[in-house]
Amino acid sequence: MAAAARVVLRSAAFKAAVTDVCGGVHSTNAALSVLRLSPSSSLRLKTQKRHAAHFTFYPDPVPTTYGPTTKMNLFQSITSALDNTLASDPTAVIFGEDVAFGGVFRCTVGLRDKYGKDRVFNTPLCEQGIVGFGIGVAVAGATAIAEIQFADYIFPAFDQFVNEAAKYRYRSGNHFDCGNLTVRAPWGCVGHGSLYHSQSPEAFFAHCPGLKVVVPRGPVQAKGLLLSCIADKNPCIFFEPKILYRAAVEQVPTEAYYLPLSQADIVQEGSDLTMVAWGTQVHVMREVANMAQDKLGVSCEVIDLQTILPWDIDTVCKSVVKTGRLLISHEAPVTGGFAAEISTAVQEECFLNLEAPITRVCGYDTPFPHIFEPFYIPDKWKCFEAVRRMINY
């Protein structure tokens, strides 16, 4: 009897979950039909595909202007940037939860042994304390590099970012600042992170003047942009796409080099449609651009925004004036996502040049799911369908 009751309860819970995730579909049969139509509808296929990447990584060309290179994945390029900083700046310190032994993603592995426990050290599990301590270190004149173990847990420190770090220079009339503060955090979906390990919170901080928010697309960009954040005289938040830590491999310069902040990068030129993304989604856009060329004969220009705040409106608008169409994609929920800010700015500046409505392909307005991740992620098929609609508009 008890076993039968458990079966009934589990069935009811499953139906409720399907109804909720499918955007309020009040017919459970209709929701289940959505699952049946999915290419990963069977439990066996779901088990096999759950951890498969939803993107193809496109490596950057080997840099030729920054000296010798070596093969690195993204987390190794982060380690290399931190190593360069500790070696050249005797005031630099790295701290956060578990960073002393390398961190959960191994980004600081070996640095404590090389530079000592006074420069690379663990903190209590307290994000507000980590960022608050970093502000104090930076105000005192040292270089503070803090790690939040997952971007999903950055919110306890939100007050420290918004009301302290971002406003320190303004409220003191530029007599004091905490510009030597950089906060790193693993960011974005990973394929199995679910509610608390897959979020993309960049838009929360994009509303706060005084901060810089940066997201790289690969190892070469990650090292150069992180070193620029550390050198910048404003507090910076550096979000690292965790799914790329090992999946992204490039030839990366071993010495320090700096890539400009607040400057978007045109990673693929085109004439018919502009695509804007950042982080992992850049690689989705590049794959969609190739699909559009092959299947529709459409030439797409792909732009990696790189810096979310302050963002490069000039590069984006110049591209839209040329192509007449704009598609923006990010993993975060669509409502209030940074794509909305880009859409508004481009509509104001380029209205008479637009050949089709600006389109956003983003996450749904739900918490990031687990079982239903394939439905949530703005993958190449959703983006390709958006391109088709825009071209036929």
Rank of each mutant, 00 (worst) to 15 (best):
K233R: 14
R246P: 12
S198A: 15
I243M: 12
S198I: 05
L227K: 11
A203V: 14
A203G: 11
P219S: 12
V215T: 01
P201T: 07
V213T: 04
S198W: 08
R217N: 02
K212D: 03
P216H: 02
A247W: 06
E240H: 04
H207Q: 15
G224P: 10
F204C: 14
V220E: 00
Q199D: 08
A203C: 12
F204W: 12
G193P: 12
V220I: 13
G188W: 02
F205S: 06
F204I: 15
Y196P: 11
C236I: 04
V213I: 13
G224D: 00
P201A: 08
V183L: 02
C208S: 05
E240S: 05
K212G: 10
P219R: 07
H192Y: 13
P235A: 04
V215H: 01
E202Y: 02
C229Q: 07
Y196A: 12
Y245F: 10
K242N: 02
D232F: 08
G191P: 15
P186R: 01
V214A: 00
L244M: 14
V249Y: 15
L227G: 09
G210K: 00
K223E: 06
A185T: 03
R246H: 03
P216C: 06
V190H: 12
P216E: 01
V215E: 00
A185V: 03
G188R: 04
R184L: 02
P241H: 05
V220R: 01
Q199S: 14
G193E: 07
Y245A: 04
A248M: 07
P186Q: 02
A203T: 13
V215P: 04
F204H: 10
S228M: 15
P186D: 06
H197M: 06
G218M: 03
A231M: 14
E202G: 08
K242H: 06
L195K: 10
F205E: 10
C189Q: 09
P235D: 10
C229Y: 07
P209G: 06
G188M: 08
F204P: 08
A231P: 09
V249K: 13
A222N: 09
G210M: 01
G193A: 09
K212S: 07
G224F: 04
A203M: 10
P201F: 13
H192K: 11
G193F: 04
H197F: 11
A231W: 01
Y245S: 02
G218Y: 03
P219E: 12
I237H: 04
C229F: 10
G210A: 07
L211G: 04
V220H: 00
E202V: 11
V190I: 15
V220Q: 03
I243Y: 03
P209L: 03
L195S: 14
A231H: 10
V249T: 15
C208A: 05
A231F: 14
A203E: 12
F238N: 01
R184V: 02
P209H: 05
C236W: 03
C236S: 11
P235R: 05
A222Q: 04
A222R: 01
V220A: 06
F238M: 01
A247Q: 15
L225N: 08
P186L: 08
V190R: 00
Y245G: 09
P219A: 15
C229I: 05
P201Q: 11
D232P: 08
V214Y: 05
P209C: 05
E250A: 06
A231V: 15
I243P: 10
A248H: 05
K233L: 10
K212Y: 07
V220G: 07
P186H: 07
C236H: 00
P219T: 13
V214D: 01
R246L: 14
